[in-house]
Each structure stands twice: as structure tokens, then as C-alpha cells.
Amino acid sequence: MRKNILMFSLIAGMVALSGAGMSVSSAKAAATSGTGTESCKDCHADQVASFMKSRHSKGAITGPNGTGVCLTCHGPNLTAHMAAGGGKGTGAFTFDKKADPEARAEKCLICHTDSKHLALWESSKHKSAGLSCDSCHSGHSSLAKNLKMPQVELCFSCHKDVKAEAGRQSHHPIKEGKVSCSDCHDPHGSFNAKSLKADSVNELCYKCHAEKRGPFMNEHPPVAQDCLICHTSHGSNHNKLLNERTPNLCQTCHVGTSGHYGTPFTLARGFTPNTPTTVGTNYSSGRAVARSCLNCHAAIHGSNGPGVYGQRFAK
């Protein structure tokens, strides 16, 4: 731990040194001059103030041919807008949610059309749903990626079902801020279902859970095929983000005549009839207490163990 902190301090120090030549002077004067903000702030003081905190206000970032920033996004008829004394419908382009999403997006694409992040935007679900850049971003935002609000909060504002799932007792640390939506999904589109950032669910999961990747001598087929056959991604009422409580989850595939497969592991087979002080004739089943099937099938994600014990993921 200490070593890690030292290492990071070294990195951070180097980054700091690398920028030592940056002089500390106001950039705002440069940003305001020639960009139109001076003219606009008389009526739009709050908007100009928020804009000046954003990365878009930096001098090196201008519209085509050095166009002033207000004009780039809210033009091209700002002259008419000012001549009319301001007001809606007097020439200024506003990012009103009733405006055509494509028209709103076009304003952003003046500068961002070549962005690699937008390469697959045309095929994205968000575009199909009628979203535009300003649905999530604001040119005036000072947050990372110019998002309108912190990412998870932003995504949850529409995906309320996911918000509910992420609050379940077993969940990925999304609301704790350790996993963000864009770790797994690309909001600007991908070739994959659910806009996943990987060619398959498993490829995505293995980025963080590399120990599950194998390949194992004894593969558990649903594990090797799709983690979501057993798990859910955002949150679950059941431990380990399982879709269903074990042993019933296992018995959705392992169906049979007797023994493990055909036996219903009811309350009569749990701890209840067999507390330490009242050992009775109905003994517990290891399959109906605590982690149930996983009490024995330890290597459920795959095993290199010998013989039938390896085949059954118990060794």
C-alpha cells in the first residue's frame, strides 16, 4: 500500500513538473475577447458565467475559422437576435428540447463530427430513441466530458429500472462510484447489444474478473457462454448478483430423476430441523444451507481438477 502511494506520488509529481512552465495568468480575458461573450453577458450573465468555467471557453477551442464560441452554438443569426433586443424566436438557436434532435446535434458536430467517439453514433440506440448531444452534455458544463450532471446520476435519470436494480442488496459498486455506466456501455453506440464495450458479455466481464477467463480443462458451459445466464449485471436480491436463489438457480438446468437434480431442497432440509442443540432425524442438507450447491461445487466457473471431481467443479 505504502509502496503504491509512493509510486503514485512519483507519477503525480512528474506530471506536476511537466507543467511547470505553465504561467499563471487569467485566460478569461482572451476567451471573452472576440468570442461574443462580452455582448451576450449583459442579458445572459449566468449562462456566460457557467460557460467561462467550462473547457469550451478556452482560447484554443473555437468554432470553424475561429468563430466566436457563442456564435458557433447559438448562431448564425445573433445579430438579428441582438437587433430585436433579444427574446425567443429572434434568431438565436436554443437547445430547446422541442427542437429537432438532429438540428441540435448538428451544432455540436460542427466541431466534433470527426470524433472517434461518434464513429458509431448513427447506429446507436440513443440516436434511435431521439436523443441528441445536449440530452446528456452541455457546452456550459464544467464537469468531465461536459456532462450535465455526474454520469451515474445522468444515466439513472432515464434508466430508472437500472437505478432500482443498482440499489438491491447485491450490486456492483455503481452508486458507490467505483463502477460507472461507461465502464461497460458506450452511450455513443457500438456493434453490440446493449451498447456493450465488448464483443460479448463474457469478454466485458473478464476485464475486471480475469480469473474467470480460463480456459479451463473442465468448462461449465453456461459460464463459458454468457455470464448473464446465471448473473445479472446491475444488482440483485440474491447474493453474488445471481438471477435466482441457489439451489433453484442450478436446478433450472440440472433437472433429473433423483439425488441432487430431482430433489426439492425445502425448508425441511435446511438448518431448521437440525439446530446444534436439537439433532433430529431430519438432518440438514449441505445443498439447502448457506451457499447451498456452492458449498461443495467450489470451482463452479471452471476447474482443472482431476477426475469426476474436476468435472463436477468440486475440486
Binding site: F271, S284, S285, G286, A288, V289, A290, S292
Partner: peptide
Amino acid sequence: GQYDNYANVYYTSA
């Protein structure tokens, strides 16, 4: 129910 009366030692037979 599978954790009710949880015991570190449980009996699967006599």
C-alpha cells in the same frame, strides 16, 4: 430460510 439458525457446525447425518 437457508441461514435461519445458522450454525458453524451442522449435521448432514448422525
